[in-house]
Design a protein around this nucleic acid. Structure first.
Lengths: 210, 210
DNA sequence: TCATTCTTGTTAAAATTATAACATATCAAT
DNA sequence: ATTGATATGTTATAATTTTAACAAGAATGA
C-alpha cells in the first residue's frame, strides 16, 4: 500500500529504455550497463539507475543488466505484458498514418476499429481495420471493452469525441488534436501536441540567435 | 546572452496560451484574466502569471490582459511574427497527414518541399507540395535556407535523415520517428514520440487499478 | 478625494526532480 | 583466499519548478 510518487519523466524514460533494450536484444547483446543505456538515450547513468531503483533491483553489481530480463521487467511495469484494445476516432490522413504505423503492433496495441462521420468512409476498411459510424462508438467501446481511445480529428470536435469515449467507459485517451481536452479523473489522458514542440523549436532558434 | 534560464515547460505553456488567446479573439473576447486562461488550460492562475513574468509585464492590474496584445507579445516571444520555411522528409501516410494539417499554416509554418527515396513518389506533389529525391535534400536546404526539417520516416533511417538536414545547415528538427536522434548542439531538436505517451497511459491504467 | 474591489507582478516557501558521491556486491586473476 | 577492477543501488546534495502569499496598481462609485 505504500505509494511513492514516481515522476512522469521516469515513466517516459522507462518506455525509451525498453525500446533501446529491444534494439540491443535484436543485435544479440545480452548484457548492458547503465552507462551504455545512458549513451543510447543521451542521458546519464545515474538517472538510469535512479529510474530503475523506483521499482526494484534489476541488475548485478560489477556486471550490469541482463538485456532480456530488464526489458521484461520494464514491460511488466509499463503494463505491456498483455495486449491493449484500442479504437481510433478519425479516418483521415492522420488516422490512416496511425493505423499503418508499426509501433502499435510491435508494442502490443491493437487498433480494432475506426470511427468517422463521413458516409463515404463508413463501411470501408483502412489497413484492414473497419470504419464504423461514430454514432456506434459508445456502444462499441462498452461492448468490446476497448481500453484506449485515440483521437485523430480536428480540434473543433475533439472534446466531443472524448466525451463519447468517456461515455463508453474508456480507460485512457491519446489525443492528437492540438487543443485542450478535459476528461474525468478516472480516465487517463495525454495529448500529443506537435504544434507546441514546433514553437519550442522556434523559440529556441530565435533566442539562441541573440 | 540569455539573462535567465526559462523552463521549457513555460515555453510549452506559452504556445498553448497563444492558441487559447486565438480562440478568445475569434469569439470576440477582448479582455481576459489569468484565472480564465488557467481555466482554459486546466492550469493555475499563479502559473500563468509566473510564466508571463519571465518576459515582462503584459497586463493591467485590476483589469486583466488585452487578448490581442498579449497574443501578439507571446507570438513575438515564440518567434512567430515571421514565417518559417520547413521541409519534410518522408512522403508516406504520416508525411501526407502533416502536409494537410491545418496547424502549420495557421501558425506560420510553410512546408515547401517533401523528400523521399521512392521513385514512384518523386516528381509527384502531395497537397500541392512537390516531392523531390532525398539525394537533393542537402543542396535544397542550403539553397532555400530552409530552417525547419520534419522527419516522418521509420526509425531505421531517421538518424540518416537528421544527418542530411544538419549537413544542409538546418536550424531545427522536429522528429516524428520513435527513436533517439543525435544532432550537434547548434541544431535544435525535439521528438514527437507518441509511443512513449501511449505507454505512460498504460502504466497509469495498470497502476491505478491496484 | 477616498475607500473599495479587482487582478496583476513579485517575492518567498515548498515540492519536485536531477546530479553527484559513495558504499556494496560481483567477477576475475593471482 | 585476497586483491583489484567494475558497475550497481542508495543516500545526500543541488538545482529546478511549482505553489502560495501578498504588496501594488488601476478602475469604480460615493
Amino acid at each position: 500500500m505504500k505509494t511513492q510518487k514516481i515522476p512522469e519523466a521516469t515513466i517516459v524514460r522507462l518506455s525509451m529504455y525498453s525500446r533501446f533494450l529491444n534494439n540491443l536484444a535484436n543485435n544479440g547483446v545480452t548484457i548492458v550497463s547503465s552507462e551504455e543505456i545512458a549513451k543510447g538515450l543521451n542521458g546519464s547513468p545515474a538517472q538510469v539507475r535512479k529510474d530503475l531503483a523506483y521499482f526494484g533491483e534489476f541488475g548485478t553489481r560489477g556486471v550490469g543488466y541482463n538485456v532480456r530480463d530488464l526489458n521484461e521487467q520494464i514491460k511488466k511495469i509499463l503494463g505491456l505484458t498483455h495486449k491493449w484494445k484500442a479504437i481510433l476516432v478519425g479516418a483521415g490522413h492522420l488516422g490512416t498514418a496511425l493505423i499503418n504505423h508499426k509501433a502499435f503492433k510491435t508494442r502490443g496495441f491493437e487498433i480494432q476499429a475506426v470511427f468517422d462521420n463521413a458516409p463515404q468512409k463508413i463501411g470501408q476498411t483502412i489497413g484492414g481495420v473497419p470504419v464504423y459510424d461514430v454514432a456506434e462508438l459508445v456502444d462499441y467501446v462498452k461492448r468490446e471493452k476497448a481500453q484506449i481511445g485515440i483521437i485523430a480529428i480536428p480540434p473543433a470536435h475533439a472534446q466531443e469525441a472524448a466525451d463519447l469515449l468517456v461515455q463508453g467507459e474508456i480507460k485512457a485517451i491519446l489525443n492528437f488534436a492540438p487543443c485542450v481536452i478535459t476528461v474525468p479523473p478516472q480516465v487517463e489522458m495525454r495529448s500529443v501536441d506537435f504544434t507546441v514542440y514546433l514553437e519550442v523549436l522556434t523559440y529556441n532558434v530565435e533566442t539562441n540567435r541573440k
